[in-house]
């Protein structure tokens, strides 16, 4: 099997589905790049993160659409195209720009199916690059998925590795509802085994990344990588963990988490977002209410602090939950 970066894995999925389904279009700022430039190079960019490379030469400017800087119109146009029978993929570039386009996401595409009595859906995919770790500052580093996961009508996908990213993207492109597809910027270059052909990873099915007996650790996106490090470090002390990657947080596979907690009796949830109204808080609440009797220790959550994302290297490093903090949290629940 080929080793591919998460960037290339998502690119693979877009290529496959655009070839298979003529209704799929891609739109966003510089998804191709080069329009109106003086060099005449028509694919000067392929997306700021390189995820949409090669699409324009293959599928043409009719289906691979460079837009002006107009996020409300980009998302709104995706919503409208979806209502009119296309399957658009809108690239929002940095997830933070959701602020500019929020109405089209949460008042428009999220609610069509319900408001229109189930008579139509809005099969659009919005791609959002998220996450801290690159010193991009307060307006280019957030993990704002809790905001969108709280909106009924949106599906929210958060891959942690290349294999899942491709399979989840193919599911997203074939899904009949609006899908918010969060890509952690620090994971783009990380490689993993990715089959060349067509395969899907279903929504609402968590992955059991590690199996163990003492603690259930739930983590998302880059935090899965950090949690693996923490769990490896604990093995020498005879502590073993279930590591669960929900992969989609709306829908959320709560059953897999609850079953694991039934066995371990201990839960640590790791989330790069600030703690209030986070996925960590949400998952902790679900386990506290539905799995209360399984718990042998108070639930620990490991999150960013309740602050914007700072710029300076030292501060940003302190902001992002670290493998060490995850390790400490696991040790703490083990003390009970």
């Amino acid at each position: 099997m080929a080793q591919k970066s998460m960037r290339d894995a998502i690119n693979d999925a877009l290529h496959l589905e655009m070839a298979r389904d003529p209704r799929v279009i891609v739109l966003g700022e510089d998804v191709s790049g080069g329009a109106g430039g003086s060099s005449g190079e028509r694919e000067a960019s392929g997306g700021i993160f390189g995820v949409t490379k090669g699409l324009l030469p293959k599928f043409g400017a009719g289906r691979v659409i460079d837009t002006p800087i107009s996020e409300s119109a980009i998302i709104g146009a995706a919503a409208g195209a979806a209502l009119a029978g296309l399957r658009p993929v809108a690239e929002l570039m940095f997830a933070d720009f959701v602020g500019v386009s929020l109405d089209q996401i949460f008042n428009q595409m999220a609610k069509f199916r319900y408001m229109f009595g189930g008579k139509t859906g809005c099969p659009a995919v919005v791609r959002l690059a998220m996450g801290a770790g690159m010193n991009m500052g307060a307006q280019h580093s957030q993990t704002i998925y809790p905001l969108l996961a709280s909106v009924p009508g949106l599906k929210v996908v958060i891959p942690s590795n290349a294999y899942d990213a491709k399979g989840l993207m193919l599911s997203a492109l074939r899904d009949d509802d609006p899908v918010m597809f969060f890509e952690h910027k620090a994971l783009y270059p990380r490689k993993g085994e990715v089959p060349d052909g067509d395969y899907t990873v279903p929504f609402g099915e968590a992955a059991l990344v590690r199996e163990g007996e003492h603690v259930t650790v739930v983590a998302l996106a880059r935090m899965v990588v950090f949690a693996e490090k923490a769990i490896d470090a604990l093995a020498k002390d005879g502590i073993s963990c279930d590591l669960i990657d929900p992969r989609t947080v709306s829908p959320l596979d709560a059953d897999t988490i609850l079953e694991s907690v039934e066995n371990t009796g201990r839960l640590v949830v790791v989330d790069e977002s600030p703690p209030r109204c986070s996925l960590a808080a949400d998952i902790a609440a679900i386990v506290a209410s539905r799995g209360f009797r399984s718990l042998r220790a108070p639930i620990e959550i490991v999150t960013a602090p309740h602050t914007p994302v700072p710029f300076a290297r030292e501060l940003e490093r302190a902001y992002v939950p670290s493998p060490q903090r995850i390790e400490q949290a696991i040790r703490k629940v083990m003390q009970e």
């Binding site: 700022e29 510089d30 109106g36 000067a44 960019s45 837009t67 002006p68």
Partner: peptide, 14 residues
């Protein structure tokens, strides 16, 4: 300045 990122002004400003 002629460009927004990698896109020319004559394309993006209708």
């Amino acid at each position: 300045n002629g460009y927004s990122e990698h896109t020319g002004v004559d394309y993006a400003v209708g």
